[in-house]
Design a binder for these strands. Structure first.
Lengths: 196, 196, 196, 196
DNA sequence: GATGAATGAGGTTTCATTCAT
DNA sequence: CATGAATGAAACCTCATTCAT
């Protein structure tokens, strides 16, 4: 019923939805998207039945969309707060550092994010494109100021995000991975790849 | 029965397994891992029963392991044939170029590969590690010769493979993506990131 | 709570129950009994929760019983007001004409009625029997006066009601059905079948 | 799998499908369409799981379509074998008598048929129309020969089928109903309503 | 009185797997 | 070797009903 209603959600409802989304993120991160059934999520959330999930989310796709949106929102909030000042080169470095810090503190979020991307819907793909577009903008700006060498900004943005994704996956997979060392190397590598 | 038998597989058996694996790759690439049911794979393979798949593969995990192994084998064969000659820097460039060429000619293989990585088992993770190890070796070799700057070879290998994966995903997702242009930029970028 | 209470219902309560019953009739008529869930009925009634329906009706069966009772009451009121004067033959004709008029003006009531009959409970079957009994009485009366030929009144009553039900279903199903023409033919047919 | 295959069904398959259809008819007749779940049907058929039903019928709608088709086929076979000879009036009487006999011997078929009609699909509605069309044809033929009075054949066909349906429902509902007596009265009634 | 939240049973359907033939 | 049939677990989802507020 609720899942089909319109209007403002109440505080209780928002709390439950957030709880379910959190449980979904953890379940996906730990067991993979394929095994993240309503049943598994309900258990992780301490709910007594999968019915409650359906009560709050009209469809599983729907839930997953909110999961991804939440992850991206948390991520964006964290990263943009730290990559807003200075020249493009500085901001790029700050962006990457922020990414790596986020990985350390929100491991599950990012593992889940990677697992969700290939199950992503149309609108989510557009969201990913828009993320890349912002980075593209930053790079183009740096080129205009002469900080960056002449590359195709859109492609380089893709490269940088790919590197970030690789770090996420490695951090997720390998428990002995040294994230701090990797961050330093990543910054150097990207600097060399981009500076004029 | 066969799936539990020991001893040498017959020629017919190997042919059937290859046929099923091929169909699985195509199905995963086109519909995603989630929708790659035995039923879908059997249809794609022109088989009249899913029973035959179970007959040849003890378990679905088992089949997927062979799918991934096959993809990696095809990939390795293709790439190593083109990255064996010259200095490490030359071979690295050839490796990347070969990768991009492989994307163009084996799109389905690579899309399936990405889709399988997070359903990957322990042993498959080890296989991925060994792939990275080979690249690590190449990079270390280049450093010893003074071609490459001093970076942590293992991390740089991870970066390079991440870049490759990103190109795969983008090529798979975006139909208007210009793979040739991307290849050129990728080579430049990696050269700048690695050379002394 | 209320649904289990005893004693006189308040005016508000009666209004709410009527509102719910009306919404149920419309929903059944438009979507069929199978799809007439509490949720659908609540939406049709403009209620914000299915809980309110359960509050006023102890059980779904209970609600459906009241729905059927309401329909039959409305129907009886409409028809008996027009079939009370004259000889049995005249009243029979008036009864049929009234039925057909009722179809035109209360389409939803009658469609719902037909849809409810096979979900009908014991007591509802008895109600239908009593309706037929009244018609039986009328027919027997006409026989005593010599207006009608000698048939088994109870069976003939069943026939007449069957004809009426058929007209309802046809009117409900076929949008091009000419109800007025059908009414005329029906009157003739019944007259020929009954008159001495 | 099988439910989606093409080509000729095997003997075993036809037998299983028939068994399931028979169980569905009995379940609908005894408990009503609403309560005729796959689970109930599987139990009635002595199957070990509902999965087998889905294996043979792609969809519940699909199964119900076959149920209705089977009923109509059995019915048509029974009735047309007995209503083919003589003048239209004779055949009409034979048709009605055959209907009543069928009711006695195939009670469940007919109860289920009535319960399915309002859940009927487009194509099933067309089938019902075509049944009425055949009767319409018979009536028009009788009019041309002068056996029947001038009525609208299509409407009269609807009336006759409505009478038949009423008898079915009454026979289904009332265990003490005297079908033989009803048949006699029905024949007389229809004769009076139709003859010139 | 009314509402939103919660519950748990049960709905249809898909799936990997087994087995007789 | 291969097939069709069968199985039962588990998937997502809907529903009537209960209850605290």
């Amino acid at each position: 019923m609720r899942a089909r209603k319109q209007g403002e959600p109440t505080a209780i409802e928002r709390a439950r939805r957030a709880q379910i989304v959190r449980a979904a993120i953890d379940t996906i991160a730990e067991s993979g998207y394929t095994r993240a059934s309503f049943s598994a999520i309900a258990t992780a959330a301490g709910l007594s039945s999968t019915g409650l999930i359906s009560y709050h989310f009209a469809t599983k796709q729907n839930l997953m969309a909110e999961v991804l949106a939440t992850i991206l929102a948390d991520f964006t909030e964290f990263v943009t707060a730290r990559a807003t000042q200075g020249t493009p080169a500085t901001r790029l470095a700050a962006f990457l550092a922020a990414n790596c810090d986020f990985i350390a503190s929100h491991r599950n979020h990012l593992i889940a994010m990677l697992d969700l991307q290939h199950a992503a819907s149309e609108s989510q793909a557009r969201q990913a494109d828009s993320d890349r577009a912002k980075l593209t903008e930053l790079l183009a700006d740096g080129q205009r100021r002469g900080e960056f060498r002449p590359f195709t900004p859109d492609l380089m943005a893709g490269f940088i995000l790919s590197l970030r994704n690789g770090v996420i996956r490695r951090a997720a997979t390998d428990p002995e991975f040294d994230l701090a060392a990797c961050t330093a190397e990543l910054l150097t590598t990207v600097r060399l790849a981009t500076t004029a």
